[in-house]
Simulated assay, not measured.
Amino acid sequence: MRGGELGTKTVGIIGVGAIGSRVTELVSAFGAETIGTKRDTTTVPDALDQVFPADEYHKILTQADYVVVACPLTDETEGLLGIDEFRLMSRESVLINVARGEIVDQDDLVRALQHGLIDGAALDVFDEEPLPPDSLLWDLSNVVVTPHMAWTTSKTTDRWADLIAENYDALTASSPKNITNRVL
């Protein structure tokens, strides 16, 4: 098995919010080209080379070597990626889902991986969590499965407390636009 070089690749982020912005910063540090989708394209992270409106996510699929799913689960994003979308991707591309399992049609993903429509997947989220023992994803050599715990560290509780305090201060100061992690 050989590794690749991220610096020669294009990383596409579907959903350049807080998490997608951080992914953009990290991969750009390796020299990767970064492209992404955003609902509001008027504010874009400096590390993002090119931005598309959210409904133009297909452009990401056709250009990216790595597709990172970091958008929220909404009525519009549920089932966003299925067999038609995998057919748009390069056979050498890799799907990385750190958002929600329901954004990707898991059965279609398994078929795409089995038939070589895409090269691989790294998955932190699934339709059903934990991933059932009989899921075909466990047996595919081109899949990395993680236990949907990327958010938990020894500092998580402290960060939650700080965030709640900051949001409470913003709310009591009648500044709801300054609330972090607002649900729109």
Rank of each mutant, 00 (worst) to 15 (best):
T10R: 04
S154F: 07
R100S: 05
G36H: 03
Q106D: 09
R22A: 11
A99V: 00
V51C: 03
I118H: 04
R182I: 08
D84V: 11
G20N: 02
D65N: 10
P45N: 08
Y66R: 06
Q63W: 00
E33G: 09
E56D: 13
W138P: 09
G36I: 04
T153C: 07
W160R: 15
L123V: 05
M1F: 09
H58P: 00
A18Y: 09
K59V: 03
D124R: 01
K9T: 10
D169F: 04
T74D: 10
T37S: 11
I164N: 09
E33I: 13
Q114I: 08
I118Q: 00
W151M: 08
P53M: 08
E5I: 14
V27P: 03
R159L: 12
L113S: 08
I103C: 07
Q114L: 12
A47L: 07
E85H: 08
S154D: 11
A150F: 05
Q114C: 08
S141M: 06
L117A: 11
P72H: 05
A18T: 15
L26E: 07
I164G: 12
G15R: 00
S135I: 10
E128Y: 07
D162E: 14
T62I: 12
L73E: 07
S21A: 15
A161I: 13
P45W: 01
A112C: 06
G15L: 02
S174F: 09
D134Q: 14
K155D: 13
L95R: 03
E85D: 07
D84Y: 10
S141G: 14
T37K: 01
R100I: 09
D119N: 15
D46T: 14
L137Y: 03
A47D: 11
F126N: 08
D46S: 14
E76P: 06
M89T: 10
V183F: 01
V16R: 00
I83D: 11
I14W: 01
L61V: 09
G12M: 03
G36V: 02
T156R: 09
A29R: 11
